[in-house]
């Protein structure tokens, strides 16, 4: 096993170096020439074409804004005044797409009106720099002065106003769009169809062992968002975030979302399983990630195998079962969808 792994590691490293080695040492153009080509060339034209197509086809059937209720325990905080965008004045001049207006406001961020959310969606749709990829979700993310995150979604076309340099990140509204973006329920992998409807624990961070979305907010600091799924009986989740603070997540529609804003990127010294607690409606602790069968070992070894999980009728949920390994029964994710 070890020899196989060593050979494999060497082969993978050699392959990656070979692939990377085909990139020439010098760019074909200066940055400014390249920039001019892209701005005047096919990239811009195709973006605009996609954008026009998106605007024509878009039918916004749902727009929402959600206040993420995660609260940092431990007192770390940064000024969020620079997150206050977009402003009502910008909204007032945003063009309105020739589509039906949003019909539903599921959640409301303090300080944002339904009209502002509607205008934000229109602005996102018409933004000159929108990515414009075809797909399932329109998503615009903004932050209000109190640090909450506003998310605008539409199921009729992929687009985004997310600007990584600005540091606003999707959370989800009403969580379903996050699931769509992550491919839950849509994976083509053999295990994916099962894993979309089953959990390897009553509280599952992400879908593949991770689940933190971290982003530099440039001038404002660092934003971490933890997203995952919960079993129907879980009504409260606490999670240790990067840097060590414990955050109480918001739980809804089978998902949980926690977030923290920090002055800068936290150092990561945590090894092993992320501490996550799940509570039921009577505030009784029903899940502790550190004692869960799916917990990672404190000491990793090359021979360690992650536990495998199957549905109640024996269909694999995780793809990692090895010959002879006894798999555990997964938890049904009842309220997702």
């Amino acid at each position: 096993m070890n020899n196989d792994l060593d050979e494999l590691e060497v082969r993978v490293a050699a392959t990656l170096r070979t692939v990377a080695g085909t990139v020439p040492d010098e760019p074909p153009h200066s940055f400014w020439d390249q920039r001019a080509q892209w701005q005047n060339g096919h990239r811009l034209r195709s973006q605009k074409a996609r954008q026009r197509k998106t605007i024509r086809r878009a039918t916004i059937v749902g727009v929402g804004a959600i206040a993420v209720c995660g609260a940092v325990v431990g007192g770390l905080a940064v000024s969020t005044s620079q997150h206050a965008r977009p402003t009502p004045a910008r909204h007032a001049t945003a063009p309105t797409p020739a589509t039906a207006p949003p019909q539903t406001i599921h959640y409301q961020v303090a300080g944002y009106t339904a009209e502002q959310a509607t205008a934000a969606a229109a602005q996102c749709l018409s933004a000159a720099g929108a990515a414009g990829e075809q797909g399932a979700v329109l998503r615009a993310t903004f932050s209000d002065p109190a640090g909450s995150t506003l998310v605008v979604t539409s199921p009729s076309g992929w687009n985004t106003c997310d600007e990584s340099a600005d540091g606003t990140v999707l959370v989800a509204d009403p969580f379903k769009s996050y699931a769509d973006a992550q491919g839950w329920g849509q994976s083509a992998s053999p295990a994916g169809d099962q894993s979309a409807h089953w959990l390897i624990a009553p509280v599952e961070l992400g879908s593949d062992g991770g689940g933190y979305l971290s982003k530099s907010t440039m001038s404002d600091g660092w934003l971490d968002v933890a997203v995952g799924r919960v079993a129907p009986n879980i009504t409260k989740v606490t999670i240790q975030m990067p840097g060590g603070s414990t955050v109480t997540a918001s739980v809804e529609n089978g998902f949980f979302v926690a977030r923290q804003l920090l002055p800068s990127a936290p150092s990561f010294s945590q090894a092993g399983t992320v501490p996550i607690m799940g509570y039921d409606s009577s505030n009784k602790l029903v899940y502790d990630s550190l004692t869960s069968p799916s917990a990672l070992p404190a000491q990793f070894s090359p021979t360690w195998q992650p536990p495998c999980f199957v549905t109640s009728n024996g269909r694999p949920v995780t793809p990692n079962a090895v010959s002879g390994q006894k798999c555990l029964i997964a938890t049904a994710w009842g309220s997702g969808g």
């Binding site: 490293a13 990656l16 991770g210 399983t273 990672l296 992650p306």
Partner: peptide
């Protein structure tokens, strides 16, 4: 295996715990 980052460096880059990185590498190789 290309950038030659240590596990803790990868964890910082990807914004996840080192245990998760070990698991991702292990599962990826598998």
């Amino acid at each position: 295996y290309y950038a030659d980052q240590r596990i803790d460096e990868i964890a910082e880059t990807l914004g996840c715990p080192t245990g998760t990185v070990k698991s991702l590498v292990h599962r990826g190789l598998a």
